[in-house]
Amino acid sequence: MDILLSRSLVEPDATHVTADQHTLLMLNSIDMTGDEAHALGAGRLNHGFASLGLRTMLSTQTLGAALEVLSRYFATCSSVFRMRIDYRGDVAEVSLRAEGRDEDRCEVLEEIWFNALYTFMCWFVGTRLPVMAATVARLDHPSVHRVHWAAKAPLTRGEISSLLLPRTCLQWRRQVDDVEEPVWEALRFWMDDDVGSAADVQTGLRSVFNRFEAPARATIDDAFNDRGVSDRQMSRRIKAQYGATFRDLRGDALVDVATRLLQLTDMPIDEIGAQLGYAEERSFRRFLRNRVGQTPAQIRRARVRAPRTSDQAVRSRIHALTRKMEL
């Protein structure tokens, strides 16, 4: 572990890692085992597996087509993973299952690639996907029954790892060109777009809410405008799926992004409110006070400045490791 942390430019006593350092930790884990399956006994994956998978996705034009070809790629080129896309009305479920001798280790492997798959999907369409709900197979996942750290969606435990998306997302078109280093480009997009990154937090905000000019006023009809069911039916489905109303979920997302902007940037409070869709600063203040019991100024004063290793040094190492994974 000491060697892994050292190679990832993380101090041994660190209580926080940046998005870049987290990515470097993952890549160093792969490199140190010499196996993209993290030597978890579920069958070997060579270093080119991820790169070739991304290249198969780039042979298509829509997200739905990319996932279908990726599913066939997994079935043909891997004894480890099985991927499926199932449809239930206006909802698409993208699921991933790792198969091998040790079920516990397979669940760990499943979680690793579950996050990678979501990263690759977002890179393909050039924005964060509006995930409705997520499941993971690991019983001890730290976010179970809360919110998935990457997809920002309600998370529960299930038999397999899966994402629930509005079916219309599968019609979204490819936004990236053929590139020489797809693994590096996908990871770089993810790090640059991360709403937790102080360097590019406004870009992350626009990506999360790219479909809404005023996310604070977004409605069910805005989010599911091709669903073929009434708002009342959709409200019941949302409530049954993860025990919350659309308004509550929207409020949670607004609080999360507002908190990040307040604590990671020096943007004026009125500008943050305007970004989120509040016409008046007092409306934004009232929303936060009612939702979390704090004013924007109180949230900002509570921010913690985490010490940061040189981003350039971390990214240089990430780039060097991804080159081993490219075909």
Rank of each mutant, 00 (worst) to 15 (best):
P215T: 02
A216T: 05
R217N: 13
R217S: 14
R217L: 13
A218D: 00
A218K: 06
T219D: 10
T219S: 15
D221M: 11
D222F: 04
A223M: 15
F224C: 12
N225D: 14
D226F: 10
R227Y: 06
R227F: 06
R227I: 10
R227C: 14
G228F: 07
S230W: 09
S230A: 10
S230I: 14
S230G: 15
S230C: 07
D231I: 13
R232F: 07
R232D: 14
Q233T: 15
Q233R: 11
Q233N: 08
M234I: 11
M234T: 13
S235Y: 00
R237H: 09
R237Q: 11
R237P: 00
A240W: 04
A240F: 12
A240G: 02
A240D: 08
Q241I: 09
Y242A: 05
G243P: 00
G243H: 09
A244S: 12
A244P: 00
R247W: 05
R247V: 13
L249F: 01
L249E: 15
R250Q: 05
G251C: 00
D252W: 10
D252T: 08
D252P: 01
A253D: 09
L254M: 08
V257P: 00
A258D: 05
A258M: 05
R260F: 01
L261C: 14
L261H: 02
L262H: 05
L262F: 06
L264F: 03
L264N: 05
T265A: 09
M267H: 00
P268T: 06
I269V: 15
G273Y: 03
Q275N: 04
G277Y: 02
Y278M: 03
A279M: 08
A279F: 04
E281V: 15
E281C: 08
E281F: 00
E281H: 03
R285E: 14
R285N: 14
R286N: 11
F287R: 07
F287D: 07
F287N: 11
L288R: 04
R289A: 10
N290I: 07
G293V: 12
Q294C: 07
Q294T: 05
A297D: 04
A297N: 04
Q298A: 15
Q298K: 14
I299M: 13
I299F: 00
R300Q: 11
R301T: 12
A302C: 11
A302P: 03
R303V: 04
V304H: 11
R305E: 12
R305Q: 15
R305C: 04
A306T: 08
P307F: 05
P307A: 12
R308F: 04
R308L: 06
R308C: 06
R308Q: 14
D311C: 05
Q312H: 08
Q312T: 07
V314N: 01
R315A: 03
R317P: 00
R317A: 01
I318F: 12
I318C: 13
I318D: 03
H319Y: 15
H319E: 15
A320R: 10
A320M: 03
T322K: 12
T322E: 05
T322P: 07
K324Q: 12
M325V: 04
